[in-house]
Computed example of a mutant assay.
Amino acid sequence: MSVLLIGGDKINKITQLLKSLGVDNTIHWDSRRNSTSHKKIPKDTDLVIMLTDFLKHNSMSYFKKYAKKNDIPYICTRRGTASIESEFTKFLNAKS
């Protein structure tokens, strides 16, 4: 499974958590530059995780619309590992 993580800076714990939950590939965009808000989500992305603590509202809206248009599931959550694990588990259960 390939996950695009948008937002945040220090994501080592998050990537370790995702790996333990079965994610093979994690791509990270920190969203500090305005140019991030106009990137295209890679086609092989299975899930987009947006960290709401570190993402501008307009950027989040852009990525949500892009994901919906291209049938890519997404999660909007806070940066805490407990929040991410909870939302990711809900995603996996809904997918099954």
Rank of each mutant, 00 (worst) to 15 (best):
S37L: 10
D9S: 11
Q16F: 06
F54T: 03
N12F: 15
K43P: 02
L5N: 02
I6N: 01
T26R: 00
K19Q: 09
N25E: 09
C76I: 13
T52V: 14
A67S: 15
Y66Q: 12
P73R: 11
R78K: 14
I49P: 04
T89D: 06
D53S: 10
C76D: 04
L17T: 01
I6K: 02
A94F: 07
K19Y: 08
A67C: 09
S20P: 01
L17H: 02
M60A: 09
S2I: 06
L92C: 06
G80W: 15
F91A: 00
T26V: 15
G7N: 06
K56T: 04
K90R: 14
S83E: 11
N12P: 00
I14A: 01
K13T: 03
H57T: 07
D9N: 12
F63V: 06
C76Y: 13
A67P: 02
L51P: 03
N70F: 12
H38N: 12
K56Q: 07
S31T: 11
I11A: 04
K69L: 11
I49M: 12
K65T: 11
I41C: 05
M50N: 04
K39L: 15
D24Q: 12
K19C: 01
R79Q: 11
S37N: 14
E85I: 05
T45C: 13
M50K: 06
W29Y: 13
I41N: 02
F91C: 00
K19W: 04
S2A: 06
D30Y: 07
T52Y: 07
K40A: 07
K69I: 08
T45D: 10
G22E: 07
W29N: 00
D46P: 02
